[in-house]
């Protein structure tokens, strides 16, 4: 009992680490499955970074569409990032976080465009914000905002 009390912080670490890993992995797997499914569904809405519409689409209805998402870090990823910061290299634990955020934001933007009847979004841009993380106990997360101009064929 005394041993447990003396090493309470080790115990906390192990528990948080375990929760972080299991929950984080589970969430990530589910999120990726959902992302892939919706990416296939919305494959009809094309995304381009060009500033001007292709010539073929002369008669269009242009609208600003955007999608944003906030994805949280988990304890496991946090520990991993600490280890990466020690040894350098790709911060692999955060790569999936950013990847998911970017794809989710694009999907939400595409969803909006799809509802407007658009078939493409041009001039797509991304913005990333780090949320929290300035002090040690705050929740670390990432906000990703994607926005662009949706082009829908003009209905007559």
């Amino acid at each position: 009992m005394q041993l447990i009390l003396d090493n309470l912080d080790v115990l906390f670490f192990v528990v948080l680490f375990f929760i972080g890993y299991v929950a984080g992995r589970w969430n990530e797997r589910r999120h990726y499955a959902s992302i892939r499914k919706r990416e296939r569904e919305l494959a009809g809405v094309l995304v381009f970074s060009n500033r001007f519409p292709p010539v073929a689409a002369a008669q269009v209805d242009s609208r600003l569409v955007s999608g944003s998402v906030v994805i949280s870090d988990d304890y496991f990823k946090d520990v991993m990032s600490g280890l990466y910061s020690l040894f350098g290299g790709r911060v692999r634990s955060y790569e999936s976080l950013i990847d998911r955020a970017r794809r989710e934001a694009v999907l939400r933007m595409k969803d909006e465009a799809n509802k407007l009847g658009a078939e493409m979004i041009i001039n797509v841009k991304f913005q990333t914000f780090a949320i929290g993380g300035r002090n040690q106990n705050s929740v670390k997360g990432v906000e990703l905002l994607a926005y662009g101009t949706s082009l829908a064929p003009v209905r007559r």
């Binding site: 991993m80 020690l86 040894f87 790709r90 692999r92 790569e95 999936s96 998911r100």
Partner: peptide, 16 residues
């Protein structure tokens, strides 16, 4: 390409 870590626990044990 953008998400390279398919075995995070193994990376953890290697690094830690």
């Amino acid at each position: 390409i953008n998400n390279s870590d398919d075995k995070p626990l193994r990376s953890f044990f290697a690094l830690a």
